[in-house]
C-alpha cells in the first residue's frame, strides 16, 4: 500500500513538473512578444517605416529606419537566392543520384550538420576573411555572401528531409516512362516536395534576416538606403543593437520599436510559409 502510494506520488510530482516546464516554454514566447510589443508602442510610428534617419536621429530627432528595413530585406533576399542555388542541387544529387551509403553522401550530410552548428560569429569572421581575399569592403554583397553561407546548412538540411520523403515508386514510375534523372528530379521530385522546399527557403530567410553577428563584420552600416551591391548596407538587427546602446531614452525606445518590427517580419514570414505550404500541399500526390 505504501509502495503503491509512493509510486502514485512520484507520478503526480513529475506530471506537475512536466506541465510546469511546458508552461515555462510557452510563456517565455508570450513574455518575449508581449514585452517587446508593449515597450515599442510609445515609439512605434508609421514614419519609422518610411523614413531614413535624418540629422540628429540618433539624438532623438526625426527619422526612421527605412534604411535598415530595406537593407535587411535586400541582404536576406540576395543571401537566400544564393543559398537556394547552392542547396537545391546538393539535395537533389544526394537523394536522386548518389547512393545513400556512398562516402560522398555521408561526408556531405556530416559537413551540413557541422555547418548547422557553426556559430554565426564564426561565419562573420570567415566572411571577413573571404571579403579581404576577394578585395571587397564591408558591403551589401559581402553581407549577402556571408549570410548566404550561414543559410546553406539550414536550408539544405530542411530540404533534404522533405526530398527524402518523396515516394520511391513515384520516381521509378517517372524513369519507367522514359524521363531522364534530371527530368525526374525537377518535374517530379521538386514538384512533389515543393511545400517542404518553400518552407525550408522561408525558414532560412527568417534566420538570415534576423542574424546580427554575421553581418557585423561584413555588411557595414549606413544611414541611406543601399543603391549598390558594393556599398555598405544597414541591417535591422544592427540598427536595434546600435540604438539600444544609445544613452538617449527616445533612441532606446526606437530600438524596442525596431525589435518589434523585426519580430513582426520574422513572424509574418513564418506564418506565410505555413499557409503557403498548406495551400501547395493540394498539388502533391499522396
Amino acid at each position: 500500500m505504501t509502495l503503491g502510494s509512493r509510486r502514485r506520488i512520484e507520478e503526480s510530482v513529475f506530471k506537475v513538473l512536466m506541465i510546469g516546464s511546458t508552461a515555462v516554454v510557452v510563456s517565455s514566447l508570450l513574455l518575449i512578444l508581449g514585452t517587446v510589443i508593449v515597450k515599442s508602442l510609445p515609439a512605434l510610428r508609421l514614419s519609422m517605416l518610411f523614413q531614413t534617419p535624418k540629422g540628429g536621429y540618433y539624438l532623438g530627432k526625426e527619422g526612421g529606419i527605412l534604411n535598415a528595413i530595406l537593407g535587411s530585406l535586400y541582404l536576406a533576399g540576395g543571401a537566400t537566392l544564393f543559398a537556394v542555388a547552392a542547396s537545391l542541387p546538393v539535395v537533389l544529387y544526394l537523394n536522386l543520384y548518389a547512393r545513400a551509403s556512398s562516402p560522398l553522401s555521408t561526408i556531405t550530410r556530416f559537413a551540413l550538420d557541422v555547418l548547422w552548428g557553426v556559430p554565426s560569429i564564426v561565419y562573420g569572421a570567415f566572411g571577413f576573411i573571404v571579403m579581404m581575399t576577394l578585395g571587397l569592403r564591408a558591403s551589401l554583397l559581402a553581407g549577402m555572401i556571408t549570410v548566404g553561407l550561414l543559410e546553406i546548412p539550414i536550408m539544405a538540411r530542411a530540404m533534404d528531409e522533405v526530398v527524402r520523403l518523396v515516394p520511391r515508386p513515384l520516381l521509378d514510375a517517372s524513369s519507367a516512362l522514359g524521363a531522364t534523372r534530371l527530368e525526374t528530379a525537377l518535374r517530379v521530385a521538386v514538384r512533389q516536395a515543393l511545400p517542404g522546399i518553400i518552407t525550408a527557403v522561408l525558414i532560412a530567410f527568417g534566420r538570415g534576416i534576423g542574424d546580427a553577428a554575421s553581418v557585423l563584420f561584413t555588411a557595414g552600416f549606413t544611414d541611406s538606403v543601399p543603391t549598390s551591391l558594393l556599398r555598405p548596407a544597414a541591417t535591422l538587427p544592427l540598427a536595434i543593437f546600435f540604438q539600444l546602446g544609445s544613452p538617449v531614452p527616445e533612441v532606446q525606445q526606437r530600438a524596442y520599436a525596431s525589435a518589434a518590427i523585426l519580430t513582426l517580419i520574422v513572424l509574418a514570414v513564418s506564418l506565410a510559409s505555413r499557409e503557403l505550404a498548406r495551400r501547395l500541399r493540394k498539388h502533391t500526390i499522396r
Partner: peptide, 24 residues
C-alpha cells in the same frame, strides 16, 4: 498548440532575445 509555439520561439532573432533580456 504547443508545437507551433516552439517553432515560433526557434524563429525569434537573437537580437530580440537580447532586447528582451535587457528589458526583463
Amino acid at each position: 498548440v504547443t508545437k507551433p509555439v516552439i517553432d515560433l520561439l526557434a524563429g525569434i532573432p537573437s537580437v530580440v532575445f537580447g532586447v528582451w533580456g535587457v528589458l526583463m
